[in-house]
Write a protein that binds this DNA or RNA. Structure first.
Lengths: 331, 331
DNA sequence: CGCCACGTTGCAACCGGTTGCAAAACGCTT
DNA sequence: AAGCGTTTTGCAACCGGTTGCAACGTGGCG
């Protein structure tokens, strides 16, 4: 059924090595044999089996793509960019869904069983221990949207969440809001924690400003709507920084359902600048996160790591900027 | 670095075969050796390499998951359900992004190079030739959201798009709309064609009804918005069946931007019942497509096919039903 | 106690490739 | 035509597993 190296070798009248070499970059084959082999391969419809090749070369060109949020549309774009970028470089994404997973052992074992060349952890909510565990297991790993620390244990590509928090607070203060709120994603997510920290740091610089904060269950529409509904029943702030666009959109929905208007009654600023944020019916003021660059950089980094396993962990942060739309009152 | 069969065998004082057998279901090993081997494996942290195993067993447990639409949020849910469902059965999804691809040859070759056990084509826009090509290559394939025909060449799991078209037209007619429109996804997509056909079939049963139709560039928000804007400049219908929710939401946005109101000026009915359709700010009347069942069924089917390669192509269709919300005028 | 059957074990070949090594072929020079 | 240094080539071992087969050990039975 499947045509192998041997078949091609026999047909071309050469040894198996010769065939292998014509399909291995940089191997030594004469033009003549190469021609013979290519002809035979063409006739037989042969192409080398990556799985078998990986056994000796220890390179499967398989990259584990680990995610844990399948409710935030931003991740569709993330998957799109990752799959295309990896494909262009001849790499293949093995998608791993870690929703609700707390143990790293099983997924690591699984990815090792498939001898993946590297792992990309694409999540701002997955605890760092996952990425660390991969690294300890000797697998090159890039944590995209991971937490920026002074001494990173793994390669991090993403944004400076603290500085985004500061930026959000600063923007709200500038608009004249006196009581501002932070509505984060899951409390356990490093991204939520860091955004809050930055937010509070900035608030601390402005004595007259009152700040409050709370968290929602997930980076999802429903969680945002639910949390905002709860906030509306209590001591509501004048404007909120929601830790994510999809959360913001949920919050917007809750505000409107309560009969209040945005930005007149309540201001909202999000983070991500997802496609939907620009929709006329949403028109969300938000902090733009340069997803495309983050992902391209992540891919370049993992590609580099394939040849340089023990490179020191590096952090790559990209600048964010405010996108002015209609959910905050004008300056 | 990596611990192999041989290491475990040496440590346990048995042959490599014995170790292999303890990790192969249904192989003959005495309780005593099994214990010894398991102890050694545990101490060494051994687990069998699937890649190497696949070489002889011809089972990699890798499933190609082929998609071509990364702009419709419904696919995030699709990926979520597929990855979880496959993982639960010990299978691993190799994600393939075929956006903009027209040739099937390269992707097929690629999936064969990775010896995938089967392929799931999850798309209502990818031409049938892709799925057919996989099948001809001898790889079990399920086309999820594929076209239902009388003599399917591959296994199809999805909905009856024609009947959905009829259902939509019938609903609009019942509401008293006299001039109704069909706004499809890409003209080349079988799902668009079938939905239109059903739509027109139903219209033909009602002599007094006028119908018009057009297509948009993609199943995406932008395409829907663009196409609706165009329609609004011409001979606009009283209500539209949009071939997909995300398209509907784009259309809604265009209608509102034009200063018109829904459902007073224009009615809209979508298809899919994606999460967002239920959001208060959208509140889209739509045809519910039972995604979860479709995907579970697809997974069960591909699992069956792994053991029964030459099973006759089968079509599995699931019932859709109308979800009444606020974008059509009441009965 | 001996024989037989059966479950268990190890050997060795194989899955589809790659690669170090030594021999063979080649191209030049003298 | 011989001598030399380079390529090119095939052999054989190996990557990490599985598996058919024959040998082995054991228990049950007569």
């Amino acid at each position: 059924m499947t045509v192998t190296l041997k078949d091609v070798a026999e047909r071309a009248g050469v040894s198996r090595s010769a065939v292998s070499r014509t399909f291995t970059e940089g191997a030594s084959v004469s033009a003549k044999t190469r021609r013979k082999v290519e002809k035979a391969a063409e006739e037989l419809g042969y192409s080398p089996n990556f799985i078998a090749r990986g056994l000796t070369t220890r390179r499967t060109k398989l990259i584990g793509l680990v995610a844990d949020n399948f409710h935030n549309p931003i991740f569709l774009q993330v998957f799109d960019l990752f799959t295309r970028g990896l494909q262009e470089r001849g790499l293949r994404p093995l998608l791993v869904n870690l929703s609700g997973e707390t143990e790293a052992e099983a997924p690591i074992r699984m990815l090792q069983q498939y001898s993946v060349d590297g792992v990309i952890v694409a999540s701002s909510t997955l605890p760092p221990l996952f990425a660390h565990a991969f690294r300890r297991a000797g697998v090159p790993v890039v944590h995209t949207f991971g937490r920026h620390t002074d001494a990173p244990e793994v390669h991090i590509v993403g944004i400076d969440n603290r500085s985004c928090g500061r930026m959000a607070a600063e923007t709200l203060v500038k608009r004249g809001y006196r009581h501002i709120g932070f509505m984060g994603g899951p409390e356990g997510a490093t991204s939520s924690q860091d955004r809050l920290q930055g937010f509070l740091e900035e608030v601390a610089k402005h004595p007259g400003i009152r700040a409050s904060h709370s968290f929602s269950d997930a980076y999802s529409f429903d969680a945002g709507r639910k949390e905002m509904s709860r906030l509306l029943r209590g001591d509501t702030a004048e404007a909120y920084f929601c830790g994510d666009d999809v959360l913001s959109i949920g919050a917007l929905s809750a505000v409107k359902s309560a009969g209040l208007s945005v930005p007149d009654d309540i201001g909202i600023i999000g983070l991500n600048d997802m496609e939907m944020a620009a929709w006329a019916s949403i028109d969300l003021t938000t902090i733009h996160q340069p997803i495309r660059q983050i992902i391209n950089s992540s891919i370049e980094l993992i590609v580099t790591l394939l040849d340089e396993h023990d490179r020191e962990p590096e952090t790559r942060l990209f600048r964010c900027h405010i996108i002015e739309r209609g959910t905050l009152r004008p300056l």
